[in-house]
Structures are given as structure tokens and as C-alpha cells.
Design a protein around this nucleic acid. Structure first.
Length: 660
RNA sequence: GCCUGGGUAGCUCAGUCGGUAGAGCAACGCAUUCGUAAUGCGUAGGUCAGGAGUUCGAAUCUCCUCCCAGGCUCCA
């Protein structure tokens, strides 16, 4: 009897009878593995456990607690969701249902234009658990395209997918497709059949650690001109523990939500009188903001930037010249028409203003690079459904600068800029970065191919020179040029787009900006747009979430609060506070009208870095009781001098009390 | 902009069948003087998001508008 031979991940080889399957392989390795196995990875392609093995293949058995295993679990759970929905809503159309990070979703169109409600999730959940209990096998079948179309004649979305694949469209974004020439399906015991590339778990009994999370609208194939479908999101994991850990993590993220903390810590609010996406900063949030801005200003002074200012509104002419009214009008507030017939616009960007400053007189090559910085407040008419806390607003302040330089200077300027950016972000406590290169947006860009190519290749080589991971974002650039963006991972592993650096050959041309070079002729400068925080509001939101509201001491609105044990200690508490205030510390005091415990509790809830408790011993010996944020045992008898020294160092190094 | 779900005191939330509104915290007043996460008593606080409708009567039912959340689309 002839054998086939496969290679395992550890390099060993295994012989099995011809016709053996992944399941046979797993069984030959061990009973435990056979029980765990969900599918196999054969030469990098995932296949069902019951698929016959290929001679000479490199094979790995896929188990649940692995990235590939989870993907299969999630995808299979999505199929069970679709089956449950079709049982509960006969005639429902199902579209696509891929595995996603932490779970899965499936898109539906219900008969008669019905919609899911939150209550339906419970019914669907119960139906899914029934299907899982029925231990239905997932069985693969293959058909020709025509057979496939016939099979799914009542499922228009499936037919559209089959036709799109046959017509050579990219299958990637469709989530579930056939391979080059066959339409594959998976069916369960009853009438449910789904178009799918596979693989799936052997049986629904292998599933069950899932939770339906929410229902949402989603456009068919992500296109807002196409019909909107009903999407159900779910989380799915390999075990009860893993699912619960994920749900706990969601709760953690919720606790860090800057909108919640902004309310609790009295930092900012969104009065409904102002409208969506328009925030006001309260004194504490205002202090935090001032500290961030002051620090940024100081770094920019040191970095050779000039400080400029520009108004919030301007005649239409400026944005006609810049191209914004052609390319960016969707995101601009409608114009105000004035008596003289002029249209005035709120500015969505600062660059045209800075360009005018550049043009205000003739420039010499000796002035370049010329770096102009402004905390520029801009207004963008975001779609009402897009605004989100401080991270997506309609009025925001950018830490915006434009650098005018020669082509020869461009590369070096970009390289030093990247160092400048990363240093600044590190000073705010972010350390884990990668870069993203966004290239020319198809059909929405100005400038010649040569210019774009030069800009993109220059940016790419500078990005590579930074030694960080670089990810390509095809077509994600601005209409006037490509960009590098710095992405940062926060304390709980989420990534945020922060700084953007954009290269722009277009604006100087459109405004006919020039400089006189050593050859005594006019030359065109190039322009670099860059915002390091992105926007002050958004950056603050990210930091609040990164630190869960426990801001490093230098950024805390109130750094120290002094509490006397009894009211006859208040004068000493006041002297301590005065001394610290003279040191430049933001210090508060709460008089002894309430029990000490209550005052400490309040200060803790406000996340103040240091609570100083002073009583009889302290008055006698000029000492303090130091209760640091994050610590459970307060320190007694610290001299005022010692505390001042420690605090000054902590502030200077941007450290937090938790790090001590 | 679109889909789903929301909006009750400064905050977090109850409010039954349609019968004109309640708690805790916060605020304010008085008392309390205390060594590391909630002292006691009292007072005040509401156009139930706004408007229209149904009804003898609306926080509650219907419609419209505004705002919020989660998604989609878009994006810093």
C-alpha cells in the first residue's frame, strides 16, 4: 500500500496511507491533538480537517487557541449566526460574514425591509445555541459558477459575489469567495447553505464561546450608494475564559473613555447648545491644554520654528487658489455671504495662510528652511454621525507648521523632522510607534505623476531611515501630496494616528511662491505640512485614555492637594501650599470642615498625584504626610524640603507618582 | 448623511396599566475637629431634551426637530 509523506512544523516527517486526511494526521500524532484540531494549514493554505492530504506538503494542525484557529472559529460562528437568522426570518438575505478582530459579523437584509432590534439579539443567540447543540457538520461542496448562481438564485448578494468573482473582481474585499474556478459552499444538516471559501470547523458543536454584541447598519460592499444592510456583530473565542477576558478588556477600555473621564474630572464638555463636535474646556481641562501647548511651544522654539498667527475666516478667493474649494469643500462649513457680495469661509486648514505669510515679501534661499508654526483653530463640517468625543470634532486646534525649503533641503528636513516628532511624543509618555505611508489618492489629487513619484519615494526613504515598522496606506494621501503618519500604541495596545507629515509641491505653485537662489533667479520652494499632536483636542483625548486619567504630574491640573488633619493645622497647610506655589506647583488646599477620610477620598477620585496630610507632628517638625497616587501606604514625616526636591524632579522628568 | 438604541435634578439612575416625579452622590446651611478612600442632621434643586398631536388627563402613546451612544461611510 502506497504512502504519502508530509512535513510537520518541527521539520519531522510523517507517513500516512494515501487518501489520509488532516483528521487522520492529527490522530496519528496524538489523541489530544485529534480532539483539538479544527483544520489544517497545508502549504500555507487553510483546509478542512476532512480534506485529503497532499503528498509532500508541509502541514500544521490548526487548534482553537491560535490566530488561525480563532479565525476559523469566528468565521464558523458567523455562519451559525446566518443560519439562525434564516430560521427566525424565513426569506432573509444574507450577504457576507467574515471573522474580524475579536469576533465576527454578518450582514443581512430582512424580508419586507424589517430591522433587527436589540431584543432580537437574545432570540438569535438562543437559536444559535440550539444549532450548536444540534452538532451539525459543516460539509463542503464545489460547483461551477453557473451551478452556484442557480443554487443561490434566492440570495441576490451571493449571486452578486459569484458574478463579481467570475468577472475577475478582487475577491479580497468580498470576504468570502470561491477560488479561481470553483464555487465552494458549506452546508449544515438542514437546508442552510452558504457560499464560502472555507475552511470551517468540523461541526457546530465545536463552537459556543461567543456573545452577540450589537446590531448596526452597514452599506453593502462598503459603498454608501448601495443599500444599507443590517449587521450583527459578535465576539467569539476559543474558551469561556478567553471570551470573558475580552469582555473585561472592553470594560477596561470603557473606564478609560476620555468622554467619561472628561466629565468625571471636570475637564471639558459638549454643551448641546453649541452643536455636535464643539467642545468647551473647563478650568482643569484648560490647564492641561495650556501645559501641553506651552511645552510644545518651547520645543518648537528650540527646533527653529517661527511663530505666526492667522484669522479664522477668509474670503473664498484664498481657498479657490489653494484648491480647497474644489477638493475639500465637503468638509467645509458653508460660506457666509457678506453685504459686499463676498463669500467668507471658516478655515478648515492653516496652510494657505502660512503660504501668504511666506509670500508677504521676497524670500532668499538664505532664509530657508523657513518653519512657521501656529496653534491654528480650524473648523470642519464633519458628517453628523462621524463626530466622536474629542477625537473627531468640528472645531479643533492643530499644532500646525509649514516648512518652506528647497528640494535639496527636503530630505534632510524630513529626516530631522521625524526625529523631532518622535522625541516630542516620547516626552508625553508614548513610546511604541510605527509609521504609515499614505500615497496618492486615486482620482482626487492635483499635480503631475513625476512630482507625486518624487514626493512618495522621498517620504518612503526617510520613513525607512527612521528604523521603525512602515505600513503602506495606498491612496490615503491628501489631495496635494503624500504623507507619513506616526501611529502610536497606547497602554492597552490600541493604535492611534497621531502626527502627520505631508510633502506638498502643489501649494507653492498654486500661490506662485518663490525664493531667490544663488543663481539670482526665482525658484519654487517646496512645502512640508506637519502637525504633531494632530489636533490638541484629539491628542489630549488619547493621552487621557493612555493614562486612564492618571496624568503624569507635569500635566495634572492640580498636582498637589494639602489637607490639615484638624482645622488648627490649616495655617500650616496654607504655608506649605504657598511654598509649593512659589515653586510653580499647581497646589490646592481643602480646609478641615469634613473628616480627613472624606477629603482624601475626594482628592483620590480627582486623581491628584500627591495628597499631603499635615497634623501635629508635621507642624512641630516641618514635615508632611505624603499620600501618592497609586500607593496604598502613605509616607509619614517627609520634610518639606525633601518633598519639594522630589516633586521638582518628577515634574522635570515628566514622570508619574506611580513610577516611584 | 444612513441604520439601531437612547435623552428624567449638576452626576449616576428608579419611575408599574396613561392619573401632574423619586433615590444616592454632588451643592447649600448648621453641627462635628477627625492622621490617610464616604461624620450627622437639615434645605434647596425638574418646561421629564424641544415642539406638535391623541386623550378628561402624557415622563409614559404618535409624529417632527435637536442632542448622545454603537456601527457604516468619511477622517486629525
Amino acid at each position: 500500500m502506497s504512502d504519502l509523506e508530509v512535513e510537520l512544523p518541527d521539520g519531522s516527517e510523517r507517513h500516512l496511507p494515501v487518501g489520509s486526511t488532516g483528521r487522520d494526521l492529527a490522530a496519528s500524532i496524538g489523541a489530544r491533538l485529534a480532539k483539538d484540531a479544527l483544520a489544517i494549514d497545508e502549504n500555507g493554505i487553510l483546509r478542512d480537517l476532512v480534506a485529503p492530504l497532499e503528498d509532500g506538503a508541509r502541514v500544521a494542525v490548526v487548534t482553537p487557541a491560535s490566530p488561525k484557529g480563532r479565525e476559523i472559529l469566528r468565521h464558523s460562528t458567523a455562519h451559525v449566526l446566518a443560519q439562525a437568522v434564516t430560521r427566525l426570518w424565513p426569506g432573509a438575505h444574507y450577504a457576507i460574514g467574515p471573522a474580524i478582530e475579536n469576533g465576527f459579523y454578518y450582514d443581512f437584509s430582512l424580508p419586507g425591509g424589517a430591522h433587527f432590534s436589540d431584543d432580537d439579539l437574545e432570540r438569535i443567540d438562543a437559536e444559535m445555541r440550539r444549532i450548536i447543540k444540534e452538532d451539525q457538520p459543516f460539509t463542503r461542496h464545489e460547483y461551477s459558477y453557473d451551478e452556484g448562481v442557480q443554487l443561490f438564485k434566492d440570495q441576490p448578494f451571493k449571486v452578486e459575489i459569484i458574478n463579481a468573482v467570475r468577472d475577475g473582481a478582487s475577491g479580497e474585499d468580498l470576504g468570502e469567495v470561491a477560488n479561481a474556478s470553483v464555487v465552494s459552499t458549506y452546508s449544515n444538516t438542514d437546508a442552510f447553505v452558504d457560499l464560502c471559501r472555507g475552511p470551517h470547523v468540523p461541526s457546530t458543536a465545536r463552537l459556543g464561546h461567543f456573545k452577540l454584541m450589537r446590531v448596526a447598519g452597514a452599506y453593502w460592499r462598503g459603498d454608501e450608494k448601495r443599500p444599507q444592510l443590517q449587521r450583527i456583530y459578535g465576539a467569539a473565542w476559543e474558551s469561556k475564559e478567553a471570551l470573558e477576558a475580552h469582555l473585561v478588556q472592553l470594560e477596561e477600555a470603557e473606564k478609560r473613555d476620555h468622554r467619561k473621564l472628561g466629565q468625571e474630572l471636570d475637564l471639558f464638555s459638549f454643551p448641546s447648545e453649541l452643536g455636535p463636535g464643539l467642545a468647551v474646556f473647563h478650568p482643569k481641562g484648560g490647564t492641561m491644554r495650556r501645559v501641553m501647548e506651552d511645552y510644545s511651544r518651547a520645543r518648537h522654539v528650540a527646533g527653529g520654528y517661527e511663530f505666526v498667527n492667522s484669522p479664522h475666516i477668509t474670503k473664498a478667493e484664498l481657498f479657490e487658489t489653494s484648491g480647497h474649494l474644489v477638493w475639500f469643500a465637503d468638509a467645509m462649513y458653508p460660506p457666509m455671504e457678506l453685504d459686499d457680495g463676498q463669500n467668507y469661509y471658516l478655515k478648515p486648514m492653516n496652510c494657505p495662510f502660512h503660504t501668504l505669510i511666506y509670500k508677504s515679501r521676497q524670500r532668499s534661499y538664505r532664509e530657508l528652511p523657513l518653519r512657521m508654526f501656529e496653534f491654528g483653530t480650524v473648523y470642519r463640517y464633519e458628517k453628523s454621525g462621524a463626530v466622536h468625543g474629542l477625537t473627531r470634532v468640528r472645531g479643533m486646534t492643530q499644532d500646525d507648521a509649514h516648512i518652506f525649503c528647497t528640494r535639496d533641503q527636503m530630505r534632510e528636513e524630513l529626516a530631522s523632522l521625524l526625529t523631532f516628532v518622535l522625541d516630542l511624543l516620547r516626552d508625553f509618555g508614548l513610546n511604541d510607534f510605527y509609521l504609515e505611508l499614505s500615497t496618492r489618492p486615486e482620482g482626487k489629487a492635483v499635480g503631475s505623476d513625476e512630482e507625486w513619484l518624487e514626493a512618495e519615494t522621498t517620504l518612503e526613504s526617510v520613513a525607512r531611515g527612521a528604523g521603525l515598522e512602515l505600513v503602506l496606506d495606498e491612496g490615503g494621501g491628501a489631495f496635494y501630496g503624500p504623507k507619513i503618519s506616526v501611529q502610536a500604541r497606547d497602554a492597552i495596545g490600541r493604535t492611534h494616528q497621531l502626527s502627520t507629515i505631508q510633502l506638498d509641491f502643489q501649494t507653492p505653485q498654486r500661490f506662485e511662491a518663490s525664493y531667490i537662489a544663488p543663481d539670482n533667479a526665482r525658484h519654487r520652494p517646496i512645502m512640508i505640512h506637519r502637525a504633531l499632536f494632530g489636533s490638541v483636542e484629539r491628542f489630549m483625548a488619547i493621552l487621557i485614555e493612555h493614562y486612564a486619567g492618571n496624568m503624569p504630574t507635569w500635566m495634572s491640573p492640580e498636582q498637589v492637594r494639602v489637607l490639615g488633619v484638624r482645622d488648627d493645622h490649616d495655617p500650616y497647610a496654607q504655608r506649605v501650599a504657598d511654598t509649593l506655589r512659589d515653586d510653580g506647583v499647581r497646589v490646592g488646599i481643602e480646609e478641615a470642615n469634613e473628616p480627613l477620610g472624606a477629603r482624601i477620598r475626594r482628592a483620590k477620585l480627582e486623581k491628584i498625584p500627591y495628597i499631603l496630610v499635615v497634623g501635629d507632628d508635621d507642624v512641630a517638625k516641618a514635615t508632611l504626610g505624603v499620600n501618592a497616587r497609586g500607593s496604598n501606604d502613605p509616607e509619614r514625616g517627609v520634610t518639606l524640603e525633601e518633598f519639594r526636591r522630589r516633586l521638582a524632579e518628577e515634574i522635570a522628568t515628566h514622570a508619574s507618582p506611580e513610577e516611584r
